[in-house]
Nucleic acid binder design. Sequence first.
DNA 1: TATGAATGAGGTTTCATTCAT
DNA 2: TATGAATGAAACCTCATTCAT
Lengths: 209, 209, 209, 209
Amino acid sequence: MGIYERKQREKERRKEEIIEAARKVFSIKGFNRATMEEIASEAELSPGTLYLYFKNKEELHTSLSISILEHLCDKVKNVVDQKITIEEKIERFRDVFIDVYEYDSNILINLFHLQSGETLKNLSEEVLAQLKKFSSEAHGAIADVIRQGIDDGIFIDEHPVALADVLWATYAGIVLWVDSKRVLNDQKDFVKSTLNTAFYVISNGLKKR
Amino acid sequence: MGIYERKQREKERRKEEIIEAARKVFSIKGFNRATMEEIASEAELSPGTLYLYFKNKEELHTSLSISILEHLCDKVKNVVDQKITIEEKIERFRDVFIDVYEYDSNILINLFHLQSGETLKNLSEEVLAQLKKFSSEAHGAIADVIRQGIDDGIFIDEHPVALADVLWATYAGIVLWVDSKRVLNDQKDFVKSTLNTAFYVISNGLKKR
Amino acid sequence: MGIYERKQREKERRKEEIIEAARKVFSIKGFNRATMEEIASEAELSPGTLYLYFKNKEELHTSLSISILEHLCDKVKNVVDQKITIEEKIERFRDVFIDVYEYDSNILINLFHLQSGETLKNLSEEVLAQLKKFSSEAHGAIADVIRQGIDDGIFIDEHPVALADVLWATYAGIVLWVDSKRVLNDQKDFVKSTLNTAFYVISNGLKKR
Amino acid sequence: MGIYERKQREKERRKEEIIEAARKVFSIKGFNRATMEEIASEAELSPGTLYLYFKNKEELHTSLSISILEHLCDKVKNVVDQKITIEEKIERFRDVFIDVYEYDSNILINLFHLQSGETLKNLSEEVLAQLKKFSSEAHGAIADVIRQGIDDGIFIDEHPVALADVLWATYAGIVLWVDSKRVLNDQKDFVKSTLNTAFYVISNGLKKR
DNA sequence: TATGAATGAGGTTTCATTCAT
DNA sequence: TATGAATGAAACCTCATTCAT
């Protein structure tokens, strides 16, 4: 391994460390209440160092979101490659969503929260590109499975991309909606059952009659 | 009308005016970038005055959210009272969601965005109560319709509240998800068609086979 | 006096106070080393308040420069109006320059120091306009006197504006040059004698032979 | 050449390279906006290396100033040695000033700008000594010529050092004054003509009647 | 009730400088 | 000698909120 590669790898490792620290802080405080100083302190670095690796707070946050999106994307693509029926794949998607939610629900909530217009202006090209990449890959994989279902004559004749949107959006919606209900109604952890119901309804609804 | 009632009514009117000004500013700037001074100026009041009517920025924002939630709630309940079939009612819910989205999509996005854990701590009891009230009323109305569908043997045998959750969460999810896709992929205004697809799938999925 | 005028006047007074505090701090520390907090503290105000009256540090500094430029301008115009010979007026200009230098040499030095390209970009239109106004008025008044001298056949046939430039630049140059010499050679306060010599040479040089 | 001399020479060469890089960056950005990292990058070195050759940013800047001052000094002394009349020498001084201005006006402006009190405190003895040396040499050379003119009965009976101050300060003043006018009035490149006028007035004014 | 000037804590960010390698 | 990652102090500026009038 050349000296350049070693440095590059070292740099990646450091980035990961910072992202890990950011995960903890953002998770507890949310974007606004989290401070760069706090994240730096969590990473046992000085505030200035963060800026050697991330352009600004916004970008650090997005890099964190990307890391979870990448994770999600990997798992979704993994489902596609499995040798199982279409219907089973749809069920596996549900499981992936539940897994990821359980892995880090707060960051997932932030992921959906912060992908709004104004937010994306301060991001570097690189980060924005990654965001798009993983986002469209995950989405594309789901659309592919649905397309297959349509081709097989199992699913209703709707545009597969639109159906993938529905699936994905439902996921996002349940995560957020349930989060707010948890606060308002002091109910806890019914994401799982709600997702189950949702997927039951949707997979039922996808099928031709 | 006594002097007390008149005062009370006057106060309500003033609150409405402020909320209206806040709607404009939050809609354009989002929660963080909007300033109390800007809202005050839009309402042709001084910053200090806002604090006579709302405890803080957070609460003003939530009051705004509530006003749209109330609107949504009214419309949902209106659907329930109509003399139409269950299936038509489900279709009407879709129309209500589309209407409200078109009325003020930005605020609606904020409504979902900001109902997250940390945010709700600064709210007064009164505001929190209202939030819960409209939220559960709207949700309950939907659940009632679904329950009816189940009782009529049309819909699948799932818990009606859970099914209402799914419906509602799907709505929230599509609004948010589509908003972020708009930014990432430069696509515009396909909320409507996505909602259509979603409701088609779901209403299909609700039905017994 | 109406309420509006009173407020306006009050605001002006407060601006003056801040400028006065800034004069002290900038005078001792120079532009870079002076901090807004220090100026605020000198003015017995909070840092935030400074920003109610001045857009930023740059503009506060320039406003200070303007106040001395205005003073200089007044005195120059005053000389022009006096009923004395052209040659006496030139001598009076010298006295004005010496007076102003003695009034606040440090700020005067800053005035010349900071009127450089990059600096002026952050200023508000209003401030920039004032800067130009006083600058060109003072300069114009000097040019007028010189023009008179040329018309009277006393002075050499050069463009009066160019000659005014020379006079003015000599002033600026001596203030700065002498300031740096003071540091390098530990000489003190020979601005006056240098200005005297300069004006002697120049007024001699202005005359036709 | 011994190993010590070679090292010394090598060190000088490296210093020159850094100064050259600094010239470019300071010239474009000015003292404050220029960063050590940028200068290092321009010199194809690392930031840390700059500190092996210069105590700090201030001293690097001053070294740059000195290099131009040395250049100026050389040229001035060169004029003195020429076999021409006193009056021609004064004219040559003007040409030297114009040449140097044209060579690097920005750095020259900085040279005058930054020789103010506070700035000089961080300089090493060595650098300060050089600054004084070239400064007084150039100035002394001019004074010598003027002294000669007085002795020859051509020039007015004033202290030659004071007259040299006037000449020098006029130069500094025009450079700065013209720079600020350029910004305020959008006029360009009339340093030359202003310097011409100034020298015409002054050389006229130096002469006895 | 309404004002709006003043507050001041606190955040992000920059960058000259250091030091282990 | 050279590196360059890391430091960390410090600065500017914002803005929600208060309170005397």
